Amino acid sequence: MKTEAWTQAVRHQLNLGRLLPLGGPDDGTWITEQAAVRALGRAAAEIPTVRMETLRIGSAPLEPVSEPAVRPPASALPPGPLRIEAAFRASLGLPLPETTDQLRSTLLNAAIERLGLATVTADLRVTDLHEGPETGVKSRTAEKAMRPPPEAAAARSSAPATGTGSMRGPIGELADVAAAVPGVARLTTVLGSRPVKVENHDDPPGRHIEVHLAVASGHHPLEVARAVRAAVASEATSDTPGPVTVAVLITETAA
């Protein structure tokens, strides 16, 4: 049973993809590649002549990175420029350069404006050409990439994981504060961990808090994360002798 649980945890982590920096070094916010890809996929779906096949986001090669102001989640990428890599099918109805330019502009604008990713390049590859719009048709690869895992679907129908069970006490209070911030759809769990993790330090005294959450529709992920960090830090500072740092990991965004 332990081996099976470990295998499922690894598969879930692989589905989440990379943990991408959101904003700049002082923003203390990351987003799962899975959540970012779905957001960009929704933007690309607005182009009727394009059908996405694959979409990945990672650090831009040879670009400088920065040290984050707060401790990042485990294995998270450092703040710095990002690169989008996408493969797509294009329609014969429009010149290919025009389609490529439109898709590149859409992906970059969505990454920057809708999410807050510091994206500088989008490398695109055409895998096939078709005669016209394929309304309602998607490749199996794209469909798989955009489909949420079973646990994500279950989370959407469940109550926010705050203030109950293992979240009682001071950690539960911090969870309640985070969940109450406008734009937070709910707190989420990654690999079965708590949505709010707290680590106290004695030498020097202080506290580090990590919050995992989903962003509600109509709210900008980076702005929501900034508000959560401020609210949680304010709450935690009241009973902490030393400095408090807060990191946010966004695991889902709404359309």
Rank of each mutant, 00 (worst) to 15 (best):
K2H: 15
K2A: 15
A5K: 05
W6N: 11
T7S: 13
Q8D: 14
Q8P: 14
A9S: 08
R11M: 12
Q13K: 07
L16R: 01
L16I: 02
R18V: 03
P21L: 03
G23N: 03
P25I: 03
G28T: 05
G28R: 01
G28I: 00
G28L: 00
W30Y: 05
I31P: 07
E33Q: 07
Q34W: 08
A35H: 01
A36C: 08
V37M: 02
P48V: 01
T49W: 06
E53I: 08
T54C: 01
T54E: 05
R56S: 09
R56A: 14
A60D: 11
P61H: 11
S66D: 15
A69R: 13
V70C: 09
P73F: 02
A74R: 15
P78T: 06
P79S: 10
G80E: 05
L82M: 09
R83Q: 13
A86L: 04
R89E: 14
A90H: 02
S91M: 01
L92A: 10
G93R: 11
G93Q: 14
L94S: 11
P95W: 06
T100Q: 14
T100D: 08
D101A: 15
Q102A: 09
L103P: 06
L103D: 02
T106V: 13
A110P: 00
A110V: 01
I112Y: 05
E113W: 11
R114Y: 12
L115A: 09
L115D: 02
G116E: 08
A118I: 14
A118F: 14
T119V: 14
A122K: 10
V126A: 02
V126T: 15
T127A: 04
L129K: 09
H130V: 12
H130P: 15
E131P: 15
G132N: 04
E134A: 06
A142S: 13
E143G: 09
E143I: 00
A145K: 01
A145F: 08
R147L: 12
P149D: 12
P150H: 03
E151Y: 06
E151P: 03
A152T: 08
A155I: 01
S157F: 09
S157W: 10
S157R: 13
T162R: 05
T162L: 08
T164W: 10
M167D: 07
R168F: 04
G169R: 03
P170M: 04
I171N: 06
I171D: 06
I171A: 07
V177T: 12
A178E: 00
A178V: 01
V181D: 02
P182D: 10
R186Q: 05
R186P: 04
R186L: 04
L187Q: 00
V190M: 06
R194L: 11
V198T: 05
V198R: 02
D202V: 15
H208I: 07
A214T: 00
S217W: 13
G218L: 11
H219R: 15
H220K: 11
E223G: 13
R226T: 12
A230Q: 13
A231H: 05
V232E: 00
V232K: 04
A236V: 09
A236F: 03
T240L: 02
T240Y: 04
P241N: 10
P241Q: 06
G242K: 08
V246H: 01
E252R: 08
A254K: 06
A254S: 13
A255V: 06
